[in-house]
Simulated scan of single mutants.
Amino acid sequence: MAPSQRPRKKMVSRCNPDTERGTLVFDIAGYSLLKGMRDGEFIRSASFPVGGLDWCIRYYPCFTKKSEGCISSFLELMSEPTGTGVMARFDLRLLNQATGVSTVLIDQVKPRLFDSVNPTWGSSMFKKISELEASPYLQNDRIVIECDITVVLGTPASALETVCEIQVPPSGLLDDLRKLLEAEKRTDIRFKVKDQVFGAHKIVLAMRSPVFEAELYGPIADKQRCATITVEDMQPAVFKALLHFIYTDLLPAMDDLEEDDKEEMVKHLLVAADRCLCSSGINRTSSPAATCTTCARPAEGSWPLASVEVPPYVTFHFINAYEETDEGRVKAIVSDCCEHNADTSILDKLRLQNL
């Protein structure tokens, strides 16, 4: 099922396990006296209640032959577990008696199951004896083992609650801009193309085109509230299609055109985009600008469709369109692009004597 087709009603239940935490401390005096205990013999701390169950710390001077040379320590569940047992996570520490700060030696982050089969968890190689006896963990024939424990009491699920899922409607921004253009509401700029006049909005044009931004808000921008710009050498239908693209990011429908007419329209739109979106070819009758004609040399077997008039105060962007022909028929329309900063000294380098 697609995301847009998902049901609007959402029902949520949450699980937040209940836990109880505690710290067990086993202060062992007479460390040297316990070294004589046989393998597997241990001493046990008093029991501590955590999570409604009793726990203790086991201490082995020597757990087995395999762990010889190390002391061992374990956390033990003293209570008879109910059901399948109880989950708990814990760490085992030694207290640095010089600083009063304990150091974690065993950190059991993942909860372990304590039950009748496995009532103890810990380490048979808790600390090497040689290291312990040369450390501040052992002072005055005394060591202190600490255990921080977190007991999972249960995993209750919350009652079912219904959450209203907000459906975000699809964006209608482009359609709104199209309607704004077609209705010519609150236009603040007019374009005269032959015998037709088109209204538009300066801020939209400047947002979509650095050329329009320079023309409308740059140093030579007309300060009048409603300026009229005359667009030369362009058909009204082409300019109307260009405005439609600027406002909607879409080309207008051309289903009613024949295939040759479509190619012709695309060709003229490339030229219009070159003039109005990537460079400046719009001549303001009230503000003459110093311009020059620039164009890259076409490839062999093609001819240029347009050259571009560029005011010297803006960054130069060039998109040059060519037709590739084969025995008189158009095979493809090819474009290339380049960019130069506003340095008028490069204009002579870009100028072609014969197009």
Rank of each mutant, 00 (worst) to 15 (best):
M1A: 13
M1W: 12
A2P: 14
P3H: 04
R6H: 11
P7G: 13
R8F: 08
K9G: 03
V12G: 06
S13T: 08
C15H: 02
N16V: 05
E20A: 04
G22P: 00
L24P: 00
L24M: 10
V25C: 02
D27F: 03
A29K: 14
A29C: 06
Y31R: 01
S32H: 09
L34Q: 05
F42M: 06
V50E: 06
R58T: 05
P61I: 01
T64E: 07
S67F: 00
E68Y: 02
E68D: 09
S72R: 05
F74N: 01
F74M: 08
M78S: 10
S79V: 03
E80Y: 09
E80P: 05
T84W: 12
V86Q: 11
V86N: 06
L92R: 03
R93A: 03
R93V: 08
R93I: 04
L94F: 00
L95N: 05
L95G: 04
T99H: 02
T99G: 05
V101D: 06
S102G: 01
S102L: 03
L105R: 04
Q108S: 11
V109Y: 00
K110V: 13
K110W: 09
R112T: 02
L113K: 06
F114K: 08
S116P: 02
V117M: 10
T120W: 03
W121P: 01
W121S: 07
S123N: 10
M125G: 05
K127N: 02
K127Y: 00
S130R: 02
I145P: 01
V151R: 02
T155C: 07
S158R: 07
T162C: 11
V163G: 03
E165H: 13
I166H: 09
S171V: 06
S171D: 06
R178C: 11
E182A: 08
K185S: 13
T187Q: 11
K202C: 04
I203C: 14
S209N: 02
A214F: 07
G218F: 04
I220Q: 15
A227H: 07
A227E: 10
D233N: 15
P236E: 08
L243P: 13
L243Y: 14
F245E: 09
I246V: 15
Y247T: 06
D249F: 08
L251C: 11
D255L: 09
D255N: 12
D255A: 14
D255K: 10
D256L: 12
E259T: 14
D260I: 13
D261I: 08
V266N: 14
K267Q: 14
L277R: 04
G281M: 04
N283C: 13
R297A: 15
P298W: 05
P304R: 09
L305P: 00
L305Y: 05
V308T: 11
P312D: 10
Y313D: 09
Y313C: 03
A321K: 00
Y322R: 00
T325V: 12
G328A: 05
G328N: 03
R329P: 06
S335W: 12
S335R: 01
D336W: 09
D336A: 13
C338W: 15
N341K: 11
I346C: 09
D348R: 14
N354C: 13
L355M: 12
L355P: 06
